[in-house]
Simulated assay, not measured.
Amino acid sequence: MKSVLEADDREGVAFLRCETRSLKGGAPVYWLCDIVRRLDVIDEEKSIVEVLDDGTDFRRYDNMTTSGYAFREEAIGSAHIFRPRFLEQWIIYDQAMKDACKAAGVRGLNFGYAYGNYKGLHP
């Protein structure tokens, strides 16, 4: 998965090698991954969204209410994977990223349904 994510969008991800040990020797290599690109992509005028803590450093969107998000495509640019500002618990990816993961046989991912006008969202 590391090689797929780095090949498809190196600027959007960061990895940290984990220290692993095995009593039998030859411990496997594991990596922690973070989606580090944060983009201000939510078009609030076109979205159905409730803003919480507006005007503070803790501004966020209420995920407990029915929401519909419209994204500003120009803010996404050529990014294949990112976290939207104020919804940073979500990871957004495009069809190219999804296809690359599937083609490489990456397992254990849950590709969610696209909400709004962007093709890939997984809370």
Rank of each mutant, 00 (worst) to 15 (best):
G12L: 02
D62I: 12
Q95K: 13
K102P: 07
K98P: 00
Q95M: 06
D54K: 15
V4H: 00
M64I: 03
A79L: 00
E6V: 11
K46M: 02
C101D: 00
Y113R: 14
G116H: 00
P28W: 10
Q95C: 10
A7Y: 04
A14R: 10
G68H: 12
F111D: 06
R17N: 07
Y69N: 06
N117S: 00
C33D: 01
R59G: 10
R37S: 05
R21P: 11
P84C: 09
A7D: 12
L52E: 11
L32W: 09
S67T: 11
F15H: 05
V51C: 02
P84R: 02
D34E: 14
A96M: 04
R83N: 11
T65D: 11
T66P: 10
D99W: 04
L32K: 15
S78E: 14
L39W: 02
L109F: 12
R10Y: 07
I92W: 03
P123W: 07
L87N: 03
A104D: 07
A14Q: 08
I48K: 14
I76W: 00
Y115D: 07
R107Q: 15
P28K: 08
I92F: 02
D62L: 02
D62H: 08
Y115R: 12
D94S: 06
I35D: 03
G55Q: 11
D94V: 12
P28R: 03
R10T: 01
F58S: 10
V41M: 02
C33Q: 06
A103Y: 06
K24L: 13
S47H: 04
N63I: 11
A104I: 00
L23G: 07
H122L: 13
I76T: 01
H80I: 01
E6Q: 15
V4I: 06
G68K: 06
A79H: 04
D53S: 12
P84M: 10
C33A: 03
T65H: 12
C18I: 02
I81V: 15
A70R: 13
G68Y: 07
W90T: 12
V106A: 13
T66K: 15
W90C: 12
P28V: 05
F15T: 01
F82G: 03
C33E: 10
K2S: 08
I35P: 02
D8K: 09
L52S: 00
Q95V: 12
M1Y: 04
G77T: 09
G120R: 01
Y61D: 07
D34L: 07
W90I: 05
T56Y: 10
I35N: 07
A114R: 11
E50D: 03
K46D: 00
A27E: 09
S22P: 04
G105L: 04
G25W: 11
R83E: 13
S67G: 13
G108P: 02
Y69R: 05
G120N: 06
W90L: 07
C18E: 11
M97L: 15
Q95D: 15
Y93E: 03
I91M: 13
Y30G: 03
D62Y: 09
G12A: 13
A27G: 08
Y30S: 10
K119D: 14
G25A: 03
R59C: 04
L121D: 14
T56D: 09
V13C: 03
V41Y: 06
N63Q: 14
R21H: 09
E50P: 00
D34M: 13
Y115E: 13
R72C: 11
P84Y: 05
E11P: 11
G25F: 08
I81W: 09
K102H: 11
Y61M: 12
